[in-house]
Amino acid sequence: MVYNAGFYFLPIYLGYTAAKKLGVRPVLGLLLVAILIEPSFVALAGTQDPALTVFGIPAPVVNYSQSVMPILLSVWVMSYVERFFDKHVPDTLVTVFVPFLTMLVMVPLSLCALAPIGAELGNLLGNFLFSLGNAGGIVSIIAIVVLMAVQHFLVITGMHMALVTLALVAYAQNGVETYALVCNLISNFAVWAMALAVFLKVKDPNEKSVALGAFVSGIVGGVSEPSLFGVGFKYTRCLVGVSIANAVAVLFIGITHVYFYNMGATSILSLLNFIAPDKPMNVVFAAIAGGIGFALSLGINYFFGVTKEQAEAGVEKATA
């Protein structure tokens, strides 16, 4: 229940943080996203007659829980709409009419256009990358290298869910998966190492606490978002270090043909997902690939991911 609450309502948290970042009233960001995952709306998804209109305009019914692109696109456009009304509504009426008029415009715009477009963009990218992974030969090798290098960016935008969905279909049909699920799990090792590198490098106790918490959340709980959002967003050069580490790790995956065999954890125990009765070395190769990504990410991000200024920031305040 706790796990589902965290991920089902992820768009709510994202709507709040995106609104603050873009200068939108946070409560409007929360409300707009809440509408997209409102239970009766989500219940229509997958039904035979999901007819829905807003002011007579047809609105595609999509389950936007755990999605990111529809949220970012909607809140981004809302920042311009709200700014427009803030500028043109008299000061005495701002408190009531700016939120009202903003939502009057954004609800149909988001439900009928922006959110479906965002979801489709994620699906198109997922289908494109997945087709490259199944092409075979040098194309597949290049595709898996590219995917591993950008995997954490896909997680940040939520686009990885489109790939994972396609991969699960392939897994259900074939009993194994050789592309998206492999990358999704092995790339986590480099992300965890990024958080550990920051913990070891920075001196501010608060920053060390955040980085250590993100590392433990990943390696024990299998949740990479604290490392990506809590650490990677602040120390952006570390995200490049993760890309380099993953690109090298995937070369070993390609050489040894690591396959995904079992559904299970996304933590350090994710290595169990690579245990195969007909390929006993598969789990060993997966562990080596994860170790390569972890070691490279730790080294690169410790020496190059955190600047001297970032490492020293907050020390004087903490000692005072």
Rank of each mutant, 00 (worst) to 15 (best):
M1I: 11
N4E: 14
N4S: 15
I12Q: 08
I12W: 00
L14Q: 06
V24P: 01
V27L: 13
V27F: 13
G29W: 02
L32V: 01
A34S: 13
I35L: 14
Q48P: 00
A51F: 10
T53H: 09
I57N: 10
S65W: 00
Q66W: 02
P70D: 13
L72H: 06
L72F: 05
L73T: 00
W76L: 15
S79H: 07
E82R: 06
F84S: 11
P90V: 05
P90Q: 07
L93N: 12
L93P: 08
L101A: 14
M103P: 04
L104W: 08
L104D: 04
P116Q: 09
I117Q: 09
G118L: 06
E120C: 03
E120A: 15
L121R: 01
L124D: 05
F128E: 06
F130W: 12
S131R: 02
L132P: 01
L132G: 14
L132R: 10
S140V: 02
S140A: 14
I141D: 05
I142E: 06
G158H: 10
H160W: 03
M161Y: 07
V164D: 14
A172S: 13
Q173Y: 00
G175N: 03
T178S: 09
N184A: 07
N184G: 11
I186K: 00
S187L: 06
S187Y: 02
L196T: 02
F199W: 14
D204M: 03
D204E: 07
E207W: 10
A211V: 14
L212T: 01
G213M: 04
A214P: 00
G218N: 10
S224A: 13
E225H: 14
E225Q: 12
S227N: 08
L228V: 08
G232A: 08
Y235K: 08
C238Y: 06
V240C: 10
V240K: 05
V242N: 05
I244T: 03
N246Q: 11
V250T: 15
V258I: 14
F260A: 04
F260D: 02
M263V: 11
G264V: 09
L269C: 12
L271W: 12
N273F: 03
F274P: 04
P277T: 05
P280L: 11
V284L: 00
A286S: 14
A287K: 00
G290H: 00
A295L: 12
F303Y: 15
V306K: 11
E309H: 07
A311L: 09
A311N: 15
E312Y: 07
V315F: 09
T319K: 15
T319D: 09
